[in-house]
């Protein structure tokens, strides 16, 4: 099943949250949607799942518009911080409700298994749960979805380190139970990186990069050493950013860079560092 975004634009009063976005998601896999606060991640996910409408552009599934199509929307699920569930709903009831709406595309047994692993109290109302457990409640439902597309918008917000670890492992369980397109938007890049096959980076409402994990790891090289030696090498390449400490400089250079200069040390750049260097504001250079 092919999900396509074409020329997607969303304007709020005086802000353009999404600016002419084209994106295609088809191959099952775990995709990371990365972007700074206000970059447009949530807006994009909300438009895809028809929670809000676009100002311009289209979202189609296998060529047909998603908006207003129950059968198309039934192929997708979005877990997000915003509550669209009734706060009086107990987890057990939510599971029964999801089964009723999604049928074969929801696995009740897995939902209960995930809830058990998190020690989520099935008989407590959603509204009565702590912030962390509210997220867990929604995560457990989303993890049990076998829809072709499952979107997680900041799923680990408010979860402690153990619960985040558990969530990631259950996400892999969920994915291997039934392969699907899983998109996870997160700020915790370091924690999620090893699970991601694909990185979609958005900045100021636009897709900045769309790379698989191998392209991502060879996207940039960090070169460190005495400033003049680094500069001599940097002038021959495209530099993403520079950080200096006294006479010591590190340049983040596009592509794979090699050097024989023994004064220089060269290393690969991990996804989180690359993200930071690519999306850093001038004001943040303190």
């Amino acid at each position: 099943m092919k999900l396509e975004l074409k020329g997607l634009t969303k304007r709020f009063k005086d802000v353009t949250a999404l600016d002419n976005v084209d994106l295609c998601l088809e191959k099952p896999g775990i995709y990371g949607l990365l972007g700074r606060n206000g970059a447009g991640k949530t807006t994009m996910l909300n438009i895809i799942t028809a929670r809000i409408s676009a100002s311009e552009g289209t979202v189609t599934l296998d060529g047909e518009p998603v908006f207003d199509s129950d059968s198309k929307l039934g192929c997708m699920h979005l877990m997000s911080e915003v509550n669209y569930l009734d706060t009086d709903l107990r987890f057990k009831e939510a599971v029964a409700y999801a089964k009723q709406s999604y049928g074969d595309k929801f696995d009740s047994d897995s939902a209960m298994r995930y809830a058990h692993a998190f020690k989520l109290e099935g008989s407590k109302k959603l509204g009565k749960l702590s912030t962390g457990y509210k997220s867990i409640y929604k995560c457990c439902l989303a993890l049990a979805m076998d829809t072709e597309f499952v979107f997680f918008d900041e799923p680990v917000l408010g979860l402690d380190a153990n619960h985040r670890d558990l969530f990631y492992r259950l996400l892999l369980d969920s994915y291997q139970r039934k392969e699907k397109v899983v998109v996870i938007s997160t700020h915790l890049i370091e924690e999620a990186a090893s699970m991601l096959e694909h990185f979609i980076i958005i900045a100021s409402g636009r897709i900045l990069m769309n790379l698989d994990s191998e392209q991502m790891s060879s996207y940039a090289t960090a070169v460190s050493g005495p400033r003049d030696a680094v500069e001599a090498l940097a002038t021959r390449h495209s530099v993403i950013s520079r950080v200096s400490l006294g006479g010591l400089e590190t340049a983040y250079i596009k592509g794979i860079v090699e050097t024989d200069d023994p004064k220089l040390s060269v290393c690969a750049v991990d996804p989180q560092r690359l993200f930071i260097e690519l999306t850093r504001n001038e004001e943040e250079r303190v």
Binding site: G29, I30, R169, L172, D173, Q176, S194, M195
Partner: peptide
């Protein structure tokens, strides 16, 4: 199995 290794170390199964 791939699944066990993947879940234990939180690595993508394809990897």
């Amino acid at each position: 199995s791939t699944t066990e290794i993947s879940m234990t170390y939180k690595i993508n199964p394809a990897t």
